[in-house]
């Protein structure tokens, strides 16, 4: 595991993203799209019905977050990752649309890990519960779709030096499995 961060500018060059391995510390700069439970549900039900969706997911990096409201003069409030597992049922469908990265916390399902290998995508773990720290890395935010969902709307975020660790890579690596195994006793 390397402690030296890799700086990635998003949307990233495919080669840079796809070479990432679990345990690699990264700093992300550029554009993220937010989406959590309700937005995932809507995107997938539109796609399954053959309807157009209101955002372009090709090459996108999704951040599973529902920020707290912004104080005046700030782009967002506290904005840490939510549990990724809740997005698992919808994720293979979105990876098929070209999503290249996801940021959340906690382990993913087998199906998601398989879809990450099939489509070439990376899962980043951001420090869960560090919403104040992560909010400071968000320099701009705007609602892109589903404004009626409030904090669950899809936002476009511009981030600078957003800290994360590669927790799932396209080679089948899963840090939530191998990390604890390294430190388990007995």
């Amino acid at each position: 595991m390397s402690g030296y961060p890799v700086h990635l500018h998003l949307p990233a060059d495919n080669h840079d993203m796809m070479g990432l391995r679990i345990g690699q510390v990264v700093r992300l700069s550029g554009t993220l799209l937010t989406a959590r439970d309700a937005a995932h549900q809507r995107l997938v039900s539109s796609l399954e019905a053959g309807e157009a969706i209101p955002v372009c997911l090709d090459q996108a990096v999704l951040y599973y977050v529902g920020p707290a409201p912004a104080r005046p003069g700030r782009p967002v409030g506290s904005a840490g990752p939510t549990t990724a597992r809740r997005m698992d049922p919808y994720t293979p469908c979105l990876l098929a649309q070209g999503v290249k990265g996801m940021i959340g916390k906690g382990p993913r399902s087998e199906q998601v890990q398989r879809a990450m290998r099939d489509h070439g995508a990376v899962y980043f773990a951001a420090p869960g519960g560090a919403g104040a720290l992560l909010a400071q890395c968000i320099v701009q935010a705007e609602v892109l779709a589903y404004p009626e969902l409030g904090p669950e709307a899809i936002h476009r975020l511009e981030v600078r030096e957003f800290p994360a660790v590669v927790a799932g890579d396209r080679f089948g690596g899963n840090l939530y499995d191998s990390g604890p195994k390294t430190y388990a006793l007995g």
């Binding site: 529902g66 920020p67 707290a68 409030g77 939510t82 519960g129 560090a130 104040a132 720290l133 990390g179």
Partner: peptide, 30 residues
């Protein structure tokens, strides 16, 4: 002992320091 663990603990302590100034709650899930 783990590098990732140390990184996270650093982030949490820094997060607590930032939240205490009153700009952002500790976590978005209030």
């Amino acid at each position: 002992e783990s590098t990732a663990g140390q990184g996270l603990l650093n982030a949490l302590r820094e997060n607590s320091r930032i939240a205490r100034t009153g700009d952002y709650p500790l976590c978005q899930d209030t």
